[in-house]
Amino acid sequence: MAYAYLFKYIIIGDTGVGKSCLLLQFTDKRFQPVHDLTIGVEFGARMITIDGKQIKLQIWDTAGQESFRSITRSYYRGAAGALLVYDITRRDTFNHLTTWLEDARQHSNSNMVIMLIGNKRTQSAFPWTGIICIYSHKLTSLSAIFENVDLESRREVKKEEGEAFAREHGLIFMETSAKTASNVEEAFINTAKEIYEKIQEGVFDINNEANGIKIGPQHAATNATHAGNQGGQQAGGGCC
């Protein structure tokens, strides 16, 4: 319940790239392929541990629809981290990244950590792969292969392209799957690590709430044991 820091995140990106799914997977560890369009913004929160410290992530999952743009911009303010999501099976969502990035940079603080996420969309062209999963765990790996084959065949944006874009704009990059939960944890946690490092380096003024960081009520910092890195493993990136 008590946390050392609270980070505010925003999730942005085109509509339908799986922003809400990512959030749900991260906060509730479940996947819900069908859900309502996000109106304005929805919220999620979860506690993570970094460097032995409890950190609460307060996540603002914004609406991706173009018509909500002017509204969602209002929500950017005071975010410490942003997850910029595109769909690796839809090139247009990748092409729009620049606009999103400009928006984010313009409406939030300059130190905001941005994680670029290539999410993979979920519908499978092989409906029976799911059935196999249910009936036989042994076949799971098989179905995973099918799915990957399926995915790769529909992939429109190469991982290298995402990496290049991230490098060019100074972002962190990962490919995730909200469905299989692959790299989802890591995406959120690595962003938090980056923010945490920036705090340690003194880049963030934690006393300024406009930075999206709040010190927890507990000030746990003083006596926190360095329990090492419990915050999930460093993930290489590719999930496919």
Partner: peptide
């Protein structure tokens, strides 16, 4: 109220 605000602002 929040959703209402968002939708009022959104509504063309």
């Amino acid at each position: 109220f929040h959703k209402t605000a968002a939708l009022v602002l959104h509504g063309r």
